[in-house]
Design a binder for these strands. Structure first.
Lengths: 204, 204
DNA sequence: ATTATAGGCTAATGGTTGTTAGCTGTCAAG
DNA sequence: CTTGACAGCTAACAACCATTAGCCTATAAT
């Protein structure tokens, strides 16, 4: 890997662990294995590194969204795309979303960084809501709209499934046995989807 | 209010907004309306202020625990105290817990500070789990033990009710209309307890 | 009336931080 | 062979930080 990318990754690792303000440029340089001033050959300054991390995350997120078999637009913009989303897709999507924010190093560190910075910086607060707060919650509510009777019920379902997932992010970070937390989340998603599938069968 | 307490409160407000490392002693002093060196007449240093905040929170928490009509010991230590906990008590307890961590200024700021610091400091990580992570989760699992068939089912119930509450802490912080988030949480708790009460009636 | 204490202040210190200036070596292009 | 860009380095700086020393004043105690 080239130096520029190594700086980005090491900086993110440190920002995720201690927070932007608590990390010095020298610490980043140390982690990369160069001296602090050399870092300015690659980035304009500390803030520039930070901005590049956010940009990188946005790029990765855009790529990932294309690969997944789920609607990309909001329900308001394009309601038809949500009509044939079945429970099995939601099951797989939910699990891969949890894995994404825990087991993938870059995303997991980015999530921790957002958690640390979202009170300090209004822009970070926006990103936190978008990626981890009301964003996924609203998205899942859209997904459940076809299944539920009304918008309020869809929102209840979204909260019921995403709430525990969001909580398990915290538990994952504090756990020694990370794998078991992932398992625990998967079995929770399974039991939730199974319950909805059983309810659907009764309807028929 | 005396100066010592004003320092404590202003410091907590700033720590919650920017994080411990990003707040300077001068900023705290400014907020109180004195000069930075005067602050050392009341506290040994910046870390001492921080420690006093944690201590204060522990005191407040101990007081509050005594007032609530819920068991204080763990289920392992004293299983009998959990036997006659009824759903109505859980409903009230859950709502007051949410209100406590959002609408009470000191507690809400302390929660935000923990959220910011729990990656940086192992001691903060412990407190975060104790107050907001696995702590309340395990406690609620204990509470549900009398109602559920086994420990695993009790844990599922705990996760189902506390997960969305924990998520709504984040939503509360990012929301413009805070009151509506509190309402939304209360209605979620209501629907959850109502569902369990209905299930209990069928059993009889 | 004198003293002691509490709580404010200014000035200063030693350490750290982000950043710039300027030097050096490597290596590919002309 | 020369040139020039690239990427590292040391030295230095101005700003800021937590903290200390020491002074002043008002109030409470003796």
């Amino acid at each position: 890997m080239n130096t520029k990318d190594r700086i980005l990754n090491e900086a993110l690792r440190l920002f995720a662990a201690k927070g932007y303000g608590a990390v010095s440029v020298e610490q980043i340089a140390d982690a990369v294995g160069i001296k602090a001033p050399s870092l300015y050959k690659h980035y304009k300054g500390k803030r520039d590194i930070f901005n590049s991390i956010v940009k990188r995350m946005e790029e990765m997120d855009a790529e990932e969204a294309q690969e997944a078999d789920m609607p990309e637009e909001t329900a308001e913009a394009n309601p038809e795309s949500y009509e044939d989303v079945d429970l099995e897709s939601i099951r797989i999507f939910s699990k891969s979303m949890f894995s994404h924010w825990t087991e993938e190093e870059f995303s997991a560190n980015f999530r921790r960084m957002l958690t640390l910075e979202h009170f300090a910086d209004p822009e970070m607060a926006r990103l936190y809501q978008q990626y981890l707060g009301s964003g996924p919650l609203d998205y899942m509510a859209d997904v459940f709209c076809a299944l539920a009777q009304d918008r309020a019920e869809a929102y209840d379902l979204a909260r019921e499934v995403y709430g525990p997932m969001h909580l398990l992010y915290s538990v994952y970070d504090g756990a020694e046995d990370k794998k078991s937390v992932v398992k625990s989340c998967c079995s929770y998603i399974d039991s939730f989807i199974d319950k909805l599938q059983a309810a659907e069968k009764i309807k028929e």
